[in-house]
Design a protein around this nucleic acid. Structure first.
Length: 828
RNA sequence: GCCGAAGUGGCGGAAUUGGCAGACGCAGCAGACUCAAAAUCUGCCGUUGGCAACAACGUGCCGGUUCGAGUCCGGCCUUCGGCACCA
């Protein structure tokens, strides 16, 4: 027997070789062929920190499989990559090491691109986008102006979130548990004039359209729903006779309005000043307000905090029953939500209850539950259930609580002191940042003409380089000698520029549109092009953007649709939120010393092994436990593939693509059946389920069955058919080894092949095994004709030896037959 | 506190529509090859009892529906995530 000399699988060598081939500018050039359907596959673009970590590797491996599969399946695929390149770390590097933020950023980008190329990712680099380049941020500024012109960008003085460490303000979405999302330091309130985007104008549509997103994970939609926080209720006003003023409150519980015993104001409510102007307790009240305002965001908004307040000495009148209610300033009413004033009903609100108990105020029950009778002197807490019948509520007594809500709102509207009102928890998006490395806000302030947009033909407003990167309340741009002074576009007189830059989340709110037309210098993108490619068919990224980036992007899409720049409602049809990569039970981090870098894995095993392991070890949406031994196993599998195909080589080369299937032995028929079942399964897993782990395990099973022929002859036609399809199916997962093995045996390029189709006839079996159960327990397995019908199975059941044996002396009560699966005989 | 997700061998996980629980991989054990080891190939591998055929038990816990439940329903427990004075 001839000894076959095997060549060894050498990933370092073959990966470099193929990456060179793929680096040709046209290799992955996006096609826009009319005869094919389109598919837009997108991974969240990274911040250019300088190095890829395993989370990136996971993100891009998933996206690459999706994109490569769709390319082979006959789609025009858009699969681009770029960089979310503005942001604080570049500026911090400037402060710490004196490097220019642009130099730091571009050198990081260069490094990351080389790492991405080392992973063998199928991107069309012709479409790369970097948000810090003038040809991009010019359009970010242009879009700011579009928002402005549509009344969706405005500047106002407000109490805003300030992070000392970052030296800038933050949007509500960027404050997590009262701390800065980026640096984790405590955030406090500051009064500043800032730019906002009016996202609240779209609150209702952002909520409602979540229904149009069946391809999004439920939990992301629920998080957005909660964040938007829609509620329905009544807004009404209460007169303050001594002041000649009135105060508005919002409530979702109009059914408890007859139980108001006091009114609670936020210290920021404008009424407080009016009261102080006429009150002899003004000093005390002001001191209380100052004390509350000084508290940190955490102290201020924690439900654990002790409720405190001060009586103003003034009263308001409950318009429903004419009762007088004390007006208090308190620490537990939020200034920014509703009207900044709350009708307090201690009997039916736990916070009001605690407050009333502390300060000895009246409590009036207005609701009695069905199954018991509440007595005030026995109650330990407020009755807050939304169930019961009204009492102490005048003509509404005896009414069921839900009906009463509507009746009381109607009454308020009829009498003209209130109206039905919808409220949102969502606040407008604060977009100013007192930082350097971002897109300058294109606004000019003229003493004579006021706030002016920079004319479109003067965009971009470029970032100056003569700045000082000191941190503080002042934007670094204000230190530039060349930037500040300018001419008013309207009167030509002396004016100065806005020195704040935009939140980088604005840059990332439209980048996926720019990819569809990345070199356009007339518009951010062409309407036809964006409409052709968008929405994104599959978006892939981390759950951490469930609110932030994903909500902002939805908002942008709706605004640009209303501005007729595009014609769809939602940017991302399907969303896949990948889990984290963890090791030893924790997220990889320098401080824990459990970091495994992509570079070390690629240099030891190659990119194919890294990709394979990360896709195989866990379902994509779940956290992935890093395992060095698991990586070994993936490497072993690739070697196994390499070896068995080397063994098959003579047969593969001899085989023809058309061959006589009827000449196959039973064992060969069984291998061919496994092959076609594998094609079916892998196709379904890739197309419908993103179940890469099970797709890979099925391919492993096929390779295991191929090993049955390692030391005996195999039909050459079958060897060829199996090898060809195996390599095509492996190609999206492990592109280098697939390309290499393909080139050894076959013509052309595996990545340009069309996806495998399974042969229904090859899958069919004459005889199948079904389970025989007695009383639901498996007692036997039998071989039957695969086409056997239900009545035939039912007739067969009592004749089976095992059934006869176990039913001896008992009665067969019932026979359940499921063709293709089982027979269950019920005996008694 | 409210909302949501998850809980399956020693480990990662599979079971897609209510139908053989544990595919595939890791670890482990044994055999082949080898002077030997590594690598590779082959086999075994939920728990308990049994030489074995086999039997009983087994998907966080308790109960229910069903011929049949990891899967459906009700009630808990634990872990993780989100929100949290939003009136």
């Amino acid at each position: 027997m001839e000894v076959i000399k095997l060549e060894k699988y050498n990933p370092q060598e073959i990966e470099g070789k193929w990456q060179k081939v793929w680096d040709a500018p046209d290799y992955y050039k996006t096609t826009e062929d009319d005869s094919r359907p389109k598919y837009y596959a997108l991974e969240m673009f990274p911040y250019p920190s300088g190095n890829l970590h395993m989370g990136h590797v996971r993100n891009y491996s998933i996206g690459d499989v999706v994109a490569r599969y769709r390319m082979m399946a006959g789609f025009n695929v858009l699969h681009p990559m770029g960089f979310d390149a503005f942001g604080m770390p570049a500026e911090n590097a400037a402060i710490a090491h004196g490097v220019k933020p642009s130099d730091w950023t571009f050198s990081n980008i260069k490094n990351m691109i080389s790492q991405q190329k080392a992973m063998g990712l199928a991107y069309d680099w012709n479409r790369e986008v970097e948000t810090c380049r003038e040809d991009y941020y010019r359009w970010t500024q242009w879009l700011f102006e579009l928002f402005y012109k549509r009344g969706l960008a405005y500047k106002k003085e407000a109490s805003v979130n300030w992070c000392d460490k970052c030296g800038t303000v933050l949007a509500n979405e960027q404050v997590v548990d009262g701390k800065c999302w980026r640096c984790d330091s405590e955030v406090h309130k500051k009064n500043l004039a800032q730019w906002f985007f009016k996202i609240t104008e779209y609150a209702d549509e952002l909520l409602k359209d979540l229904e149009k997103l069946p391809g999004w994970p439920e939990r992301v939609k629920i998080m957005q729903e909660n964040w938007i926080g829609r509620s329905e209720g009544l807004e009404f006003s209460l007169e303050i006779p001594e002041l000649g003023e009135s105060v508005s409150v919002y409530t979702t519980r109009p059914d408890t309005a007859f139980g108001i015993t006091f009114l609670a104001l936020a210290p920021e409510n404008p009424l407080v000043e009016k009261i102080c102007a006429k009150s002899d307790k003004a000093e005390e009240i002001k001191a209380f307000c100052e004390k509350v305002k000084k508290q940190s965001e955490i102290e201020r908004t924690s439900s654990e905090s002790v409720k405190e307040g001060i009586f103003t000495g003034f009263y308001c009148v409950n318009p429903f029953n004419g009762n007088k209610a004390q007006i208090w300033v308190t620490n537990y009413v939020l200034a920014e939500y509703g009207t900044g004033a709350v009708m307090a009903v201690p009997a039916h609100d736990q916070r009001d209850w605690m407050f009333a108990k502390k300060y000895g105020m009246d409590i009036i029950l207005t609701l009695q539950p069905k199954d018991k009778t509440l007595k005030l002197d026995e109650m330990k807490e407020a009755y807050v259930e939304k169930e019961g019948t009204l009492v102490n509520s005048g003509k509404f007594d005896g009414m069921e609580m839900h009906a009463a809500i509507n009746a009381i709102i109607d009454e308020a509207e009829k009498l003209g002191f209130g109206k039905r009102h919808v409220n949102y928890r969502l606040r407008d998006w604060l977009i100013s940042r007192q930082r350097y490395w971002g897109a300058p806000i294109p606004v000019i302030y003229c003493d004579k003409c006021g706030e002016q947009l920079v004319p479109e033909n003067e965009l971009p407003v470029k970032l100056p380089e003569d700045v000082e990167f000191k941190q503080g309340a002042l934007s670094p741009l204000s230190t530039s000698k060349t930037f500040n002074d300018c001419k008013c576009p309207k009167c030509g007189g002396h004016a100065r520029r806005e020195t704040d830059t935009m939140d980088t989340f604005i840059c990332s709110s439209w980048y996926y549109m720019r990819y569809t037309d990345p070199h356009n210098d007339k518009m951010p993108f062409d309407r036809d092009k964006v409409n052709y490619w968008s929405p994104v068919d599959q978006y892939i990224g981390g759950i951490e953007h469930a609110i932030l980036h994903l909500l902002y992007s939805r908002f942008f899409t709706k605004v640009l649709r209303d501005a007729k720049l595009l014609d769809y409602d939602e940017p991302f049809t399907n969303l896949l939120t990948q889990g984290m990569v963890i090791k030893d039970g924790a997220k990889m981090s320098k401080s824990l010393g459990n970091v495994v870098t992509p570079e070390e894995i690629i240099s030891k095993y190659g990119a194919d092994t890294a990709r394979l392991f990360i896709l195989f070890a866990a379902p994509v949406e779940r956290d992935l436990d890093w395992s060095d031994q698991g990586v070994e196993g993936s490497f072993r599998f690739l070697n196994r593939v390499w070896r068995i195909l080397e063994i098959f080589e003579p047969a593969i080369k001899e085989g023809q693509s058309k061959y006589d299937v009827s000449k196959l032995t039973d064992e060969e028929i069984s291998l061919r059946r496994k092959l076609h079942k594998t094609i079916k399964k892998v196709t379904e897993d890739l197309r419908d389920r993103f179940a890469f782990n099970t797709a890979i395990s099925t391919l492993m099973e096929l390779v295991n069955e191929m090993h049955a022929f390692q030391d005996k002859p195999i039909n050459p036609g079958l060897a060829r058919e199996t090898a060809e399809n195996l390599l095509k199916m492996l190609a999206p997962f492990v592109p280098h080894i697939s390309a290499e093995l393909w080139s050894k045996f076959f013509e052309g390029d595996v990545h340009k092949q069309s996806w495998s189709k399974f042969d229904e006839k090859a899958i069919v079996e004459d005889k199948i095994e079904i389970v025989v159960q007695i009383n639901g327990k498996v007692r036997d397995k039998i071989k039957v004709d695969s086409g056997i019908t239900k009545p035939e199975l039912e007739k067969l059941a009592p004749t089976l030896d095992k059934v006869k044996e176990l039913s001896a002396g008992k009665n067969i009560v019932k026979v359940i037959a499921v063709p293709g699966k089982l027979i269950n005989v019920v005996i008694k």
